[in-house]
Design a protein around this nucleic acid. Structure first.
Lengths: 164, 164
DNA sequence: CGTCAATGGTTACAATTGAAACTATCGTAC
DNA sequence: GTACGATAGTTTCAATTGTAACCATTGACG
């Protein structure tokens, strides 16, 4: 049978990459992440994982590595590497829990804290400039939509056996 | 002067990672991308770049590698690698432009097309399930917001010397 | 025509990342 | 106490990716 006798494709089967929400999200997120990353890479030699570790420890000192992983959506290997490099750069201090010596307790050194207080405004400034594209009500909508999608995405992930 | 004499931090300087839009976007996008990627990795052994190349060629046959790169937001090295592997798996055919022999012309083989017609519904099905978390008007809003943010993110990127 | 910059694409090598195995400590059960 | 599984974290090795250098072809210019 010749190829030309083809069943017409249903509209719902057509995938137009640039209207496909997962793809659009991915592109948007990449541009945004790289823009910000570029800023603190350039000025402080920090990678994204390192910056995330700093940001979360600024807010919650004395977390263990695993707790950092949970709060940053990084895996523990990534945290371990970021922590090592930050300790090497004297931006982080590590002590060990008295009662459970497996458990590390991480906090910023004063130099680490200084980095944080200089980067945080830059990051927030970028966010502000980005969100300036939106009205106040659109900003609230965005926040709500991201939250809903996140929740749903996690649900689907677990249902389909991808998750933990 | 002792450290304890510290200027109180302004509210606007505080960065709470899980309320920071770029971070939330990144986490959301990762979960979504990995969920979908898992599907077609499992069933067809395709990577994300490979799948993107297939998707765009299904829609626009006979693009060159560079045109594929433009339409998929991938760089040309990534395209080159995905194309090589797809040709190796006989899912893509490459010919060269008669008038300009640098230029390749890529299109799906019938096997490549078969893969597309089987994956596209899965991808769209995932998208539909994801967007089921939203009302119809929220879906429209999402689309609009992503578009606005993308435009703005590109603008900021270029202004700040990150872009091309 | 011959040089030279630009374009399309690939290759090579280093840096990043991910998965699995590993060490060390702890808690529990015997 | 000691054996066992679980938890915290690290190391190792392979796969992925990113950057820069590299061909080949083309187009423009003298």
């Amino acid at each position: 049978m010749p190829q030309s006798a083809r069943v017409p494709t249903k509209i719902s089967d057509k995938l137009h990459l640039d209207r496909f929400v997962p793809y659009r999200l991915s592109v948007l997120s990449n541009i945004v992440s790289m823009s910000i990353a570029h800023t603190y890479e350039r000025e402080f030699g920090l990678t994204i994982p390192e910056w995330r570790v700093i940001a979360v420890l600024a807010r919650y000192p004395n977390l263990s590595a695993i707790e950092v992983a949970e709060r940053t959506a990084m895996d523990k290997v990534a945290v371990s590497r970021a922590v090592q490099s930050l300790i090497g750069a004297r931006r982080l201090l590590r002590t060990y829990d008295k009662g459970d010596r497996r458990r590390s307790m991480l906090r910023l050194s004063s130099s680490g804290h200084a980095v944080y207080t200089r980067i945080a405004p830059l990051a927030l400034g970028y966010e502000r400039k980005l969100l300036n594209a939106l009205s106040a009500s659109d900003r609230r909508a965005l926040d709500r939509l991201i939250g809903r999608l996140m929740e749903r995405a996690r649900l689907l992930d677990h249902l389909d056996g991808n998750g933990s």
